[in-house]
Design a protein around this nucleic acid. Sequence first.
DNA 1: CCCTTACCGATAAAAGTTCTCAATAGCATG
DNA 2: CATGCTATTGAGAACTTTTATCGGTAAGGG
Lengths: 141, 141
Amino acid sequence: MQAVLVDQLRKANRRITVQRMQVFEGVKGLDSHPSALEVFEAVKPRLPSISLATVYRNLHILRLEGLLREIHCDRGITRFDSNLSEHYHFHCTSCQRVSDVPSYSREIERSFSEKTGLHISGHHLTFQGLCNDCLKVEPSR
Amino acid sequence: MQAVLVDQLRKANRRITVQRMQVFEGVKGLDSHPSALEVFEAVKPRLPSISLATVYRNLHILRLEGLLREIHCDRGITRFDSNLSEHYHFHCTSCQRVSDVPSYSREIERSFSEKTGLHISGHHLTFQGLCNDCLKVEPSR
DNA sequence: CCCTTACCGATAAAAGTTCTCAATAGCATG
DNA sequence: CATGCTATTGAGAACTTTTATCGGTAAGGG
Ligand SMILES: [Zn+2]
Ligand SMILES: [Zn+2]
Ligand SMILES: [Zn+2]
Ligand SMILES: [Zn+2]
């Protein structure tokens, strides 16, 4: 299992450590696009001796190797995403949870690139709103 | 000048101070969507005694009153935008500058809301790429 | 001109992230 | 399986970005 992950790490001359695997599993297990601290707290029960610095270090490495993605929705927080397929996001402005939106349009990039002549490497689309849970609690706004 | 700004502040029981006006002018003058520190450095020559805390305080208040907007592109940095009209952004992944993209589609929200049944209050679209300046310097990638 | 209080500057504190370093452990090699 | 090289770890310091605290100041209404 996780053959792709292990192969990719080996190829990049990265070692397969328990901490690194657990950090990856931590992000993958939490489908809510967790922050570094949330990953730390998810991994800690299984690996009580792990350091927060190790979590940050491995999140950084896994992103460098293209095994995780970063997203920026809130102020001052970096969130991590194990879903590498092209997709958009929905950010609940009340509970701050981020969920995937399974749609994507490469046409948006092509159209923008054609209009401006700029070199485009990607685009992020994020919807803001209230999730169904939060809509029940505060029907205001 | 700045009649709308002054009226809006008065209406909200906010005082018109030199610092507050200069912070607003600082964001407006820098069309690059500056960070709080960049605003501070832009204002300092005109108001050498201003404190960084005052810049943060007023950016926060101006956003609360709907006179500025926040955007989140980089890791851990909040940028400010004086352009209140609906528009998208282009983020250069090399020099980190953010520029406006004068297009917007409310249809995207309607379509998403219809598909998912979720309550949408807005959406952000950001393109990543290399600006023309950076493309000259590093034609790689 | 005076009074109330929102605001200011300075600084400490909090939150998020990265750096430093000695000790450890992957893993290639034999 | 034993050995050696070095990437990685844990702990804590340091750094960056943002917010809170507080005594003094000044905006603006009366
Ligand atoms: Zn919610
Ligand atoms: Zn996602
Ligand atoms: Zn650039
Ligand atoms: Zn803008």
